[in-house]
Design a binder for these strands. Sequence first.
DNA 1: AAATATAATATGTCTGCACATAATATTTCT
DNA 2: AGAAATATTATGTGCAGACATATTATATTT
Lengths: 265, 265
Amino acid sequence: MSTKTQDTLQDMPHAAPEASLDATPGAASRTWPEASSQTSWQSVHAEVLHRIHTRQWKPGDLIPKEVELAEQLGCARATVNRALRELAAEGFLDRRRKAGTRVATHPVRRAKLDIPVIRLEIEGRGQKYAYGLLFSERRTPPPEICTNLRVSPDSDMLHITSLHLADGKPYMFEERWVSVAATPEIANADLSKISANEWLVLHAPYTKGDISFSAVLASETEAKVLRTQKDAPLFLIERTTWNGDHGITSARLLFAPGYRMHSAI
Amino acid sequence: MSTKTQDTLQDMPHAAPEASLDATPGAASRTWPEASSQTSWQSVHAEVLHRIHTRQWKPGDLIPKEVELAEQLGCARATVNRALRELAAEGFLDRRRKAGTRVATHPVRRAKLDIPVIRLEIEGRGQKYAYGLLFSERRTPPPEICTNLRVSPDSDMLHITSLHLADGKPYMFEERWVSVAATPEIANADLSKISANEWLVLHAPYTKGDISFSAVLASETEAKVLRTQKDAPLFLIERTTWNGDHGITSARLLFAPGYRMHSAI
DNA sequence: AAATATAATATGTCTGCACATAATATTTCT
DNA sequence: AGAAATATTATGTGCAGACATATTATATTT
């Protein structure tokens, strides 16, 4: 390795681009685990984030270019690039060729929502999962499904309603339309054993999807199925998925009162 | 290197990365811009995704290792690595050292929720944004806020309620507690001009946050503020943010009936 | 047979270098 | 001056090679 003593992340008198003074040089004692002698992209990531958090670099500021940062931090440009790329993906930085990299002015927080198979969500909480097929028919779709999935009104579809339970209590009521044309095998699946959702996840990959969340009032029948009262507030997820231009499925997922969707940001 | 004629990705007949936007669905003869002779990581990404979608590689399957894929596709391992890494981050693949890379068995769909500043969300739809401060006081927090933010019951906090409007109509009702200790400058901010949310975004960075979504019924006063009826179904977002171990703010955002949160997956 | 050490291996990451590309800045031309 | 051509520059990406590290498989010991 280079025998030259490198300016590692420890102590950097960095020339603020336009940032005037304030400097805050007092971050001197920030030490890294830093077992390896190499500077990892994660430490660069952390260091940049630190400077943003401590407002050495404020929203809108232009930060040093990759080569400069690499020099300052004692690592290769590729390493800095990796760190900055991730930070941009996370929404902390805005990057443009030639124009440089700036701290995002509107830190759009990107929440990652993991949308699991319901069964796993329930079992993950240590509850007992159960599932019941309520109704199933094969027919042509109603107009709103046609426009939603962009399929013709005379297409062959499966219409399924089912109920998912946690510890015996109604948890989610699912109403779903599946295009048989797009996934013929589903006609043979035993949807009283495995939920359509789970079957589709395993057998019908999709290329695009759309998901929306809202709050609605329980209708009379919805209330009955979910064992609650009419006009209870329900959390509704609507999902539609395509494979290429083929509409696969469109589902309304109604959650029992009290449901909360969580995410860390 | 191998002089053998490789199956490069140059002319692969499938799957546009995203683009979509209707246009011609029968995009059979997709040609890459492909000016360069090099194989990009995005084409590797697309190719692997294609193999998953066409079920050449099924959920649970072990896929070839990086070096093999690199050879097959005629590119460097680093390029394959980049593609596979992204696919793993997107939830399509599971990777483990030594064990190799498999197609994810439970394609937990990772929806990316961009949570913008409300003002931008409204203006982005071409509507006129307005904001009004309803109420503001400085006092000690109620118990639920203490536990939520993990601050002491006698801490100095700001309690703010405000209303955000789109085209003059109530859009979102915000109730917020801000720790003055954590961000002293907010005491001087003019929160009748700029919303607390926006002020905080610009001046009080945070390191962790928590967000949850649910459906609730409008209370009498909430209904009045949002100009709707009592017991209307409202979409509720609860957000809490910390900087390190310092609780910064905790907010309840109540959206007017009809609100929908969207995301593509 | 169970516990422990050791080898093997696929992914993870860093480096140095080169060239591509998009966007800006500058110069030249009309 | 205004438009068009040209140079400049920061990021984006590709490559080969090297070493790090987690994890599994195998061999060795108790």
